[in-house]
């Protein structure tokens, strides 16, 4: 679900539903109770989720974008790592949740990852993330052995 769709749902839940029926259990709606009684927990909103997760079309588009946006120049062909880290080893310097991945691409990261937020729209960023997260993670055995 993209930010834009999420916003529409919220607007809909407030303005279009009859007041007496109460808000429908729409995904993304913020519960007042949960906010008040956060206690030791983080207040619950919605998490940023990849709207194109699992889409073969998004994956194919993401692969093209990964080359076209010069990602390969640093992360290597197939994102296996070059001047910048591997993105297909199942390990993430800044977190591998959808929200963290989106942040990394949109805002950049301090060790040289450019901010692509001004260069790509959100759908395109999610397509690149779909491509990366759909790559098979090699049997990551933390041992490298020689004979």
């Amino acid at each position: 679900m993209g930010l834009r769709t999420l916003g529409l749902l919220l607007v809909g839940s407030v303005s279009c539903q009859p007041r007496e029926e109460g808000p429908p259990p729409a995904r993304g709606a913020i519960s007042y109770d949960q906010h008040i009684a956060a206690g030791e927990r983080t207040p619950t909103g919605d998490t940023l989720a990849n709207p194109s997760s699992g889409s073969a079309e998004a994956k194919a588009m993401g692969e093209k974008l990964f080359a076209a946006m010069n990602c390969e120049g640093c992360h290597g062909t197939g994102a296996t790592g070059f001047a910048a880290p591997s993105l297909v080893d199942g390990r993430w310097r800044y977190g591998g949740a959808d929200a963290a991945l989106f942040h990394s691409v949109f805002y950049g990261r301090p060790r040289g990852m450019p901010a692509y937020g001004g260069l790509m729209d959100q759908d395109a960023i999610w397509q690149v993330i779909t491509y990366l997260t759909s790559q098979p993670i090699p049997a990551v055995v933390p041992t490298q052995a020689w004979r």
Partner: peptide, 27 residues
């Protein structure tokens, strides 16, 4: 540092295979 990514040991979030033309270097 680019070609033989397995020379890096200080970053647990960046694990790479050896360079195929010199697979022994990190040994």
């Amino acid at each position: 540092a680019l070609l033989s990514g397995d020379l890096v040991s200080n970053d647990p979030t960046d694990v790479r295979p050896p360079a195929d033309f010199a697979p022994d270097l990190a040994r």
